[in-house]
Design a protein around this nucleic acid. Structure first.
Length: 581
RNA sequence: CGGGGAGUGGCGCAGCUUGGUAGCGCGCUUCGUUCGGGACGAAGAGGUCCCGGGUUCAAAUCCCGGCUCCCCGACCA
């Protein structure tokens, strides 16, 4: 391709509203153009990259046994009413009304449509398993799109849906997809890690995210410092070994005066005990609660509540912090509250509907300092089981950098920022039940297929790649997803000999199957070098008067500091070798 | 949804306080010179100043209403 004919121009300055590196470079290099908030057009260079990513994905999905299909973007709202997600999906469904006043939605994902289609084509266990995928546009009306392509409203997504006869089958499908994902990201030339993730209110039991490490990412992930361990998890999901307190005799529960002490730090300091010897209370309420309901969370003083884990402990209901009014109405004394005495006559349980959730750290720690449920008083030697119990005991603690890895190793958790570029879920039978997809099993009984779903955000993957691969001059694109392999610049456009040599070499490279972007513009060298760096193709090749004096061309990999020379007569092979580099 | 900021040729900005000719850099066109890290000279083209209303002899500028975009937070199969 001749750069002079390629639609789209490079910009010397980034638009003022672009802040992240990928946003600035993708716009400046003419890969994408914004149309509205979170809505972009892809220009030829950007679309070529996106197509390369898509093709890698296609090959690996096909290899893994999935079959490509295409489902509609606009679909009847009834499908969503059937699954029960019409009014609960977040962000809210984008809807429109057709000419017959039928409500339609612009699909944000395709579980419903896939399962609807499966229902019509699935009859026997002999039809299973199958895995269907598509690469297609999604629309999610996000409240706040941001950072160029990193978080958009309309985007290209590869979404796959597996249907299996039983759990064992799902495990096979799930593992096959995980393996395919690893191959996809590896082939794309980017370092993506699979981490354990929360599946959210929708998902089933297992869920893994694929995260590209980059400082500008929105997600926090923890990775074990021990490389042999391999533990990695999203912060929402991450677990850690909680230090086990030394065994000690249970002391006698005793109340004591703590004037003006409101915080755990102050309490620990006042008593000269470590914060890990205290238990703190945090009050939540179901998000939809209008009062009278308290989720009473007890967790050791040195730990913080992980609200995602809390939500899961609550069966998927989103918690919110309780208001001061709700806390007071329940007779809880902020700063001196504890689960000890919740059931006292006239106590909190008699005034509000209270669910007591205790982090397992509390259960394993003897003789804790806890609130006395009256202002300025606390209790010594609180012991779970003897002095208080809980409705639910579970891990609801937020992992932190440096915490011991939960794996069978001596490592600790290291914190990273990352961009979620893929996510795979074990869904179970929720959708097949809702959409009425069934099959007759070998024993003659009717059963629901067990589903999994598997997504990759393609545009986000491109943006994340740029976030992880750029310098101060521009992008440094991996060969597999760069729009072209070689940036060929003919310098000295006033010299017919050079122009002719560049043209000829362009033809030779193209004939040899090398993907070349030929900068044939009449621009000074500096402009060409700068655009080459900005666009970030893997290899820059220069044909110039200076080089031709020795019958040579110059090659410089984008990821290298130094250029090398090669005889023009051996140019094609030299370029191929340099690309393999 | 809460908080903050911004809308003036393709891009980056000034002008607005104190109303009166719309300006600068880059880019673009033509001609000439130049040719290894964003060249130089000369001559040009290009703007509903986000939209609507109001005040005024006169509005980019003042007032009112709205829209859009960006950032932080909340939210986020």
């Amino acid at each position: 391709m001749r750069l002079s004919r390629s639609f789209g121009k490079t910009l010397r300055q980034a638009p003022s509203d672009a802040e992240t590196a990928s946003h600035q470079y993708l716009v400046r290099a003419g890969f994408v153009q914004q149309v509205a908030a979170g809505i972009y057009s892809y220009l030829p260079l950007g679309w070529r990259s996106l197509t390369k990513i898509s093709n890698i994905i296609r090959q690996e999905m096909d290899r893994a046994g999935a079959q490509e299909i295409s489902m509609p973007v606009v679909q009847p709202r009834e499908l969503w009413e059937q699954s029960g997600r019409a009014d609960t999906f977040q962000p809210p469904l984008a809807t429109l009304v057709d000419r017959r006043d039928r409500k339609m939605v612009i699909a944000p994902t395709h579980e419903e449509t896939t399962t609807f289609m499966a229902a019509a084509n699935l009859e026997s266990y002999r039809d299973l398993p199958f895995n269907l995928y598509q690469i297609q546009t999604k629309f999610r009306d996000e409240a706040r799109p941001r950072a160029g392509l990193l978080r958009v409203r309309e985007f290209e997504m590869k979404d796959a849906y597996s249907f299996d006869r039983d759990e064992a089958g799902l495990d096979v499908s799930f593992k096959a997809m995980a393996a395919a994902y690893h191959r996809i990201f590896s082939r794309a030339g980017i370092d993506v890690r699979m981490v354990e993730a929360d599946s959210g209110p929708i998902g089933g039991k297992d869920s893994n995210e694929f995260v590209l490490l980059a400082e500008s990412g929105e997600d926090t992930i923890f990775v074990c410092s021990d490389e042999n361990c391999g533990y990695a998890a999203n912060a929402e999901k991450a677990e850690f070994k909680k230090p086990v307190a030394d065994a000690e005799e249970q002391g006698e529960l005793a109340e004591f005066h703590t004037p003006g002490i409101k915080t755990i730090e102050a309490l620990a300091g006042f008593l000269e005990v470590p914060v890990s010897k205290t238990v703190k209370a945090v009050f939540y309420a179901p998000e939809t609660s209008s009062g009278g309901e308290i989720i009473f969370v007890s967790i050791r003083g040195d730990l913080e509540v992980n609200e995602t884990k809390l939500r899961n402990a609550m069966g998927g209901a989103q918690p919110r912090l309780a208001t001061r009014e709700e806390v007071e109405a329940a007779g809880l004394v902020a700063g001196s509250a504890s689960a000890i005495g919740l059931d006292a006559v006239g106590g909190p349980r008699s005034r509000a509907s209270i669910t007591s959730i205790v982090d397992d750290s509390v259960v394993n720690s003897p003789n804790l300092v806890a609130g006395a449920n009256r202002a300025d008083y606390h209790l010594k030697n609180g012991n779970y089981g003897r002095d208080f119990t809980a409705d639910i005991v579970v891990d609801i603690a937020m992992a932190r950098a440096g915490d011991p890895c939960p794996g069978n190793c001596d490592g600790h958790l290291v914190e990273h920022r990352g961009v979620e570029v893929g996510h795979i879920f074990k869904l179970g039978t929720g959708y097949s039940e809702a959409m009425g997809a069934t099959f007759i099993d070998e024993d003659g009984t009717e059963k629901y297929p067990i589903m999994g779903c598997y997504g990759i955000g393609i545009g986000r993957l491109l943006a994340a790649t740029v976030e992880a691969n750029h310098d101060e001059r521009g992008m440094v694109l991996p060969r597999a997803i760069a729009p072209y392999e070689v940036y060929l610049a003919g310098l000295n456009t006033n010299d017919d000999t050079v122009v002719a040599a560049a043209e000829k070499f362009y033809d030779e490279l193209t004939a040899a199957g090398v993907e070349v972007l030929f900068d044939d513009r009449e621009e000074p060298p500096g402009v060409k070098f700068n655009d080459a760096d900005l666009i970030g193709l893997p290899l820059r090749v220069v044909v110039s008067a200076r080089g031709l004096r020795n019958g040579e061309i110059e090659m410089k990999r984008r990821d290298a500091d130094e250029a090398t020379m090669a005889p023009l007569s051996e140019g094609v092979n030299a370029v191929k070798a340099a690309l393999e580099g």
